[in-house]
Design a binder for these strands. Sequence first.
DNA 1: TTTTATACTGTATGGCAAATAGTATGTGTG
DNA 2: CACACATACTATTTGCCATACAGTATAAAA
Lengths: 109, 109
Amino acid sequence: MTDSEHYQKLKLELRRGVLILAVLAELREEHYGYSLRKNLMTKGLEIDEGTLYPLIRRLEKQALLTSEWREEGNRKKRFYRLSEIGEKTLEKLTKDWQQVESTLNNILQ
Amino acid sequence: MTDSEHYQKLKLELRRGVLILAVLAELREEHYGYSLRKNLMTKGLEIDEGTLYPLIRRLEKQALLTSEWREEGNRKKRFYRLSEIGEKTLEKLTKDWQQVESTLNNILQ
DNA sequence: TTTTATACTGTATGGCAAATAGTATGTGTG
DNA sequence: CACACATACTATTTGCCATACAGTATAAAA
C-alpha cells in the first residue's frame, strides 16, 4: 500500500464514528433516504448510498429510528425519524462527542 | 443486545478514529508503550493495551513511526516517535479533524 | 422516441480494526 | 515473600464501513 492510500484509510477512520451521530442528529426531523443524504452532503458530509442505507438499517434494528412507507409527489418513499430511544441516545452521544472533542483538542495542541 | 449495550457500541465507534490521531500527536515526543498509555489516560483518553499495541504496530508498519529498543532505568523498553512521514500525516489529519469537527457541530446544532 | 440524467432504494461481501481476554516477566516495597 | 505496579505483546471475536452490484421510476433533452 502506498503512503497516500494509508492516509486515506486513516482519514476514513476519522469520519467513521461521526457518521452515526450525524445521521441521528439529522433525523430529529423526518427524512427519506435520498433527502437525508443530500442534506448531509450540503452540510459537508459526503456519504455513499451503500454506506448510508445499511447504517440506517442498523439504527432502525436498534430501535433508534422508526420508518414508514408513504407516498409523496407521486412516489413511494421510506421516511425515517428518531424514536424516543433515539432521542435519548442522541443526547448522550452528543455529550460524549463534546468530551471526545475537548480531549482530542487538548492532546493535539 | 440491550439498549445500553447498543449505546456503548456507538460510543466506542465515536472514539475510534480519534485514537489514531491522539497517538500520532502524542508521539511527537518520544514515548514507550506504557508511558504513552498513561499519558493518554491522564489527558482523558482511555485506551486498552490490547488496542494500543496493535495500533502502534500498524502505524509503524505504515512508516509513520520509528521504534528503538533501549535500556532505561534498568529496563529495556521500546521507544517510539513520529517519523517524518508521520509528521506530515499528522498535519494533514489534524486539518481533516478540524473539518470533521466543524461539519459535525454544524449538523448537531 | 430513444437516450440520458437523476431520484430513489436497496444487498452481498471483503477487509480492517477495536475490544476482549489472555500470556509473560521484571521490579519495588511493605 | 506477597502483592501491586510496570512493561510488552498476541489470538480471537465481532462489528461495520466501503466498494461494487443491482435494480425501479420519472423527467428532460436530443
